[in-house]
Design a protein around this nucleic acid. Structure first.
Lengths: 336, 336
DNA sequence: CCGCCGTGTTGAAACGATTCAAACTCTAGG
DNA sequence: CCTAGAGTTTGAATCGTTTCAACACGGCGG
């Protein structure tokens, strides 16, 4: 059934070692031998067996990327960036979805360890990284994605969410807005807390400016709408004139509630609105929404880069931490 | 570095064969031997090497799913369904993204053939399936997803788009609407053509009903808005009172253009609107949109089922074709 | 004519798990 | 005391590739 080097070698009239050399070091083999072997390969429809290759090599040319949610455009773009960078070095990226479930994450890690993948890019579900330390101890390079490594000593690639929150708030302050609101939650999510902290710091730096926190249970359209109702009242009663949303889904929901409820609030005239993530729906909202953009593909490609570095010199204990700065995409929701 | 069965066997004081049996057929081994081996495994942190296992077995316990677009919720849900079903039989699903590029698809196929995956679930980019026939000839079960197999003899799982188009149109006709429009394009996309055909047939079956085609260049929000402008005029001039959109992005764009342009058109009072795909944004549009839903997860799990069937009896030439019927989710955009 | 070098090529060992015929240990029945 | 048979365990062979020490060959300088 399966065609192996042995048959190819027989047909080409050479030894198995030569076939292997043709495949991996063609320049060490005489040109017409190379040709003869290639003819045999085509003739027989030979496909090298990755399992055998890997068994010998001890490690595979595949990297694993475990994300919290495949449906989230943030992660699909990170994956795209990772794949592109990996392809440059002949690696493939296997995508797996933990769906924020520790069990599914564990199960994927197990499979990938058995596969002896060449590296593990992961957005961990929980704070406990001991499972990853185990993998590292077994010789698999690990890089944390969208998560700073803390004391764990893993290399990491993340985005400065504090700076992002500050960027959003400062933009509103620059427009002359002084009574700001921050929509988002729950605050135990690190990203939300950081963005809020950034906004708070920016507000604190400007005299006479204030920041009101409107909490949410999750980061969804529906919660955004609910928060929007609360905000309508706040705009009317306390003169809120600028809103920072912790992500774009919330921002879109807020905008809808403001624009289409009874007693509509005008955006951006009465209140300016900034979202976060720059998902495609933000640009095509009824009033297109200004948003904080993260370099998503760059995150992916950089993560792969860190993996490859580790692969080259597995000894070096100094883990690199790359932190990207977010940027602002200005649209109608903050332009008078 | 790597811990192998040999070391485990040594520590447990048994032979390698017994360790293998403990792992794969624990019931053939005496209970206290099992326990001793397990202790050694834990002690040493042994992780079986999938490559070696697979080399011997000739095939891996991984299935590959190649989709046209990981960012499309349709495919992520299909993936979810596939993963769940595969997990039941101890298989893992590797997700790969062809991004509608034949080159990327080919590159993924190559990698998966080398990996000797246990099966290939794929939404092919092009009509030419010869690459897949090659894979099948080499013994890899193949199932087409969201694509009928035609004469190629591959098993397939798809959804009846003609029925879906008819379902949408008939719903509008049942509400008493008679002058319908179909928005979508380009028509060379099979799904679009089928949905349009279904709508046409439903309309043809009702006396005095008509269907106007409004073409689009792609299935996006922006194209939907553009089409919406066209439709506003048509509603005013020719009395269009029902719209079928070829997907939800178009439907959302159309709704926005109708509701928020100058001279707004009321939905559903003046014109009723049906979308397709039932993406989450359809439910949370300004006026929630009625949509045709496809059993996405079921598609994935069924595809895996067909793969497993082939694996059991690779001989049988009769490929099964499973075609699912879509259903209608009724929301405010068609409820007076 | 010999020794040496470089270029190509060879073939056996190794990777780590599974398999399976054979060997071993008990038990129960005769 | 012997033996059949069930229950356990063994260990060599095997999967397909890569690696690498060793070899073959031809030419060249001495």
């Amino acid at each position: 059934m399966a065609v192996s080097v042995r048959e190819v070698a027989a047909m080409a009239g050479v030894s198995v070692g030569t076939v292997s050399n043709v495949l991996n070091r063609p320049d060490h083999v005489k040109p017409d031998t190379v040709e003869r072997v290639h003819r045999a390969i085509d003739e027989l429809g030979y496909v090298p067996n990755a399992a055998a290759r890997q068994l010998r090599a001890g490690r595979s040319r595949a990297l694993a990327l475990v994300v919290l949610d495949v449906a989230n455009p943030f992660f699909t773009d990170v994956a795209r960036g990772a794949e592109a960078r990996a392809a440059e070095d002949g690696y493939t990226v296997l995508l797996a979805n933990s769906d924020e479930s520790p069990e599914r994450e564990a199960s994927h890690l197990e499979v990938f360890e058995e596969q002896r993948v060449g590296g593990l890019l992961i957005s961990p579900v929980e704070d406990d990284l001991s499972r990853l330390e185990l993998a590292r101890d077994r010789g698999i390079p690990v890089v944390l994605v969208d998560r700073e490594a803390g004391t764990s000593g893993f290399p990491s690639v993340s985005v400065d969410d504090v700076a992002g929150g500050a960027l959003a708030a400062r933009h509103l302050l620059d427009l002359g807005r002084r009574r700001l609101a921050f929509v988002g939650g729950p605050l135990r999510i690190r990203q939300v807390a950081d963005r809020h902290r950034g906004a708070s710091e920016a507000v604190a730096a400007v005299e006479g400016a204030s920041l009101h926190l409107v909490g949410t249970d999750e980061m969804s359209l529906d919660e955004g709408r609910r928060a929007g109702e609360v905000l309508r009242a706040l705009v009317r009663e306390t003169g809120i004139d600028g809103i920072v949303a912790a992500n774009d889904l919330l921002a879109i929901g807020v905008e809808r509630a403001l624009l289409f409820g009874p007693d509509p609030v005008q955006v951006p005239d009465e209140v300016a609105l900034v979202g976060y993530d720059d998902i495609s729906f933000a640009a095509s909202a009824v009033v297109p929404i200004t948003s904080v953009r993260q370099p998503r593909e760059l995150i992916g490609s950089t993560a792969v880069e860190l993996i490859l570095e580790q692969g080259e010199r597995p000894d070096r204990a100094t883990a690199r931490h790359v932190v990207f700065e977010p940027s602002l995409v200005i649209r109608a929701s903050t332009q008078p």
